[in-house]
Amino acid sequence: MASWVLCMTLVLAALAGALGETHYEKFLRQHVDNPRTPTLAAHRYCETMLARRQVTAPGRPCKPSNTFVHAPAADLVAACSQAPDPATGFHSTPSAMSLTACRLRGGNTRPPCAYRARQLQHHVRVACRDGLPVHLAGTSAGPQ
């Protein structure tokens, strides 16, 4: 009985933690890594970061792609003060930022997930809510 109570307590605590995360906090967890986290091998960056940030997890499908921005969160917040693109409603950073684009390799959609990493200098497009970025909508080599 005691082990069941402990198990339920841990499950409820985990759910409370997940429910307590705002959209902005989730955005930061999934997309901002500043300064860039060093890893043992550069080609393992995506697998390491996606697992560490709980973007991929056992029992869930592999995320097809994810981008980590290596700039201060304040620079992405500042993008929300830029005029949105009239066609999409997304806000774009005025300058290019260093980022790592992770793309799923092969056809395996279940963990363990294998990713290809590309280092880029791109503008970042975000969706904003209440002046904060909440969704990374994409990147582009030039301003949009």
Results as ranks from 00 to 15, higher is better:
106 G>E: 07
42 A>G: 00
97 M>N: 08
44 R>S: 15
108 N>S: 14
47 E>M: 13
87 A>F: 08
30 Q>Y: 13
52 R>Q: 15
44 R>G: 10
80 C>R: 06
96 A>T: 13
117 A>Y: 04
98 S>L: 13
83 A>W: 05
133 P>M: 07
115 Y>F: 09
98 S>K: 12
83 A>H: 11
86 P>F: 02
121 Q>Y: 00
132 L>R: 15
45 Y>C: 09
30 Q>L: 10
28 L>H: 00
74 A>Y: 00
88 T>M: 01
72 P>W: 05
73 A>P: 04
132 L>I: 11
58 P>S: 14
40 L>H: 12
104 L>V: 04
26 K>C: 04
66 N>L: 02
47 E>Y: 12
39 T>L: 08
96 A>D: 03
66 N>Q: 15
134 V>P: 05
55 V>K: 04
78 A>I: 04
21 E>C: 08
68 F>C: 06
44 R>Y: 13
117 A>L: 02
119 Q>A: 15
49 M>C: 11
112 P>H: 11
119 Q>C: 07
24 Y>C: 04
81 S>M: 05
96 A>K: 12
70 H>Y: 10
78 A>F: 05
42 A>Y: 07
118 R>C: 04
116 R>K: 08
120 L>R: 15
120 L>P: 09
28 L>P: 05
46 C>T: 09
73 A>R: 01
93 T>L: 07
113 C>E: 06
102 C>Y: 04
63 K>C: 11
125 R>D: 15
131 G>F: 10
69 V>N: 04
119 Q>D: 14
